[in-house]
Design a protein around this nucleic acid. Structure first.
Lengths: 227, 227
DNA sequence: CAGCAAAAAATTTGATCATATTGTGATTGG
DNA sequence: CCAATCACAATATGATCAAATTTTTTGCTG
């Protein structure tokens, strides 16, 4: 009786102790974060109830959460869609990301032991592989994982939450950039970050993080102008 | 933006315009922001359906949004409550608020015309009245209105959104501080902000904003230690 | 008669509610 | 003190109603 026919997206929504609305949220969140939904694409409740095989209440709750996250936008007449970023939006995000995420990096530095830094480096190596392979989906996932892993050591849940919120907002647009330019032109200050972590130089870590963010976001800004 | 056409007769307020879940959200948000709910207080769905007179679906959606906002917290076993802040939380909020809101102030400076600054000053005068009256609720509302009005001139919706999110989080705890110490010891760098705005000195505006934030938040931090 | 525009019907989607089901905490008997 | 049971609150579904968009029909003009 638990068998739920899953239509499109390969993520199953059955099995697990978690309530359905939580699972729907995580599924959609992941799809948005890693650019499986195109900016501007409309999102309908009934479409999701069909494709995910759950009732409308869990879907509605998940959508409300995502709207609150800024991962989806309410288009006025009861329509919901994936956000399209303006240049002004990107500019504000650059400021906010640098402010918050540099601080997260700074705080993470002293908490990281050599083994932790090794773990981060292994993620970065896998990340390099996705770049040479031109694997956009893999790149988006591992790039996020790199930053997420680093920031976790800051033990600052509120700052982390603010950062996550920003990542959700630019996820779909970042995917578009990668689709346009490929993965080869993508920035990677991760080597600098790792080196500075090894040197226990918090300011250098923060600086390298800021540069990584700025490069990535400005690439996105450039791509938006052309779109 | 669509203009709403007025019905010719009876200008009775059209409450049915907004969907119920939106109204529930706004009601709860206001109650949380202005401290009508005590930190740690449990929030139940059924209690709200009874007291607000709506079905559970709108209530559920509103609660999910507020959890995503950080205005409510999910306590694991299906329990939802108003957040209790730790000292670490407050410390992170001080950093985030100063980063974001100083920048909002900085950006607002050049956009404000003398008449706009007058409007801000009138809000501050009413705020002073609430302080001398010991009117805690009025203080919380007008203090928020002062900052909200100022930040609106920055025309930076994403930064604004981050700031609002932070205000929602500390709202209930701020109320507790006021209840403990009264309104007389509350910080007010608003005069400095207004003076700097008149001088068109963006850096001074940002600095005064940072001081206003820091004083208020550290008062809160002190109160939390004793609690 | 053709083409455009406006109006009306139909379909799609969203909002709300009532109800069934499931899981959690409390209580009471062993 | 532990465990089986009970009561209640939360989760989830489908039905129902309302709103909006799309499609079809109709009427008018050139």
């Amino acid at each position: 009786m638990d068998l739920i026919k899953n239509k499109a997206s390969g993520t199953k929504v059955d099995e697990g102790k978690q309530p359905a609305h939580e699972q729907v949220y995580q599924t959609l969140r992941s799809q948005i974060m890693y650019g499986e939904l195109v900016p501007g694409q409309p999102v309908t409740i009934q479409g999701l109830t069909d494709s995910l095989g759950v009732g409308m209440t869990p879907v509605r709750e998940a959508i409300r959460r995502l709207i609150s996250d800024g991962a989806l936008v309410f288009q006025g007449n009861r329509r919901v869609s994936v956000p399209l970023l303006s240049n002004a939006d990107v500019e504000q995000m650059i400021f906010a990301r640098i402010s918050i995420e540099s601080e997260l990096s700074r705080r993470a530095t002293s908490a990281m032991k050599p083994a932790d830094i090794d773990r981060l480096e292994r993620i970065d190596q896998r990340l390099d592989q996705t770049i040479t392979d031109g694997d956009v989906s893999g790149y988006l996932r591992l790039n996020h994982q790199f930053h997420e892993t680093l920031y976790a050591y800051a033990h600052a849940p509120i700052l982390n939450d603010l950062a996550e919120r920003l990542w959700l907002r630019f996820g779909p647009s970042l995917r578009v950039v990668c689709g346009r330019f490929g993965t080869h032109s993508l920035p990677d200050r991760h080597k600098d970050i790792i080196a500075a972590l090894r040197a226990q130089d918090a300011e250098k870590v923060a600086k390298a993080t800021a540069q990584d963010i700025e490069q990535g976001m400005e690439l996105m800004s450039d791509a938006l102008i052309r779109a």
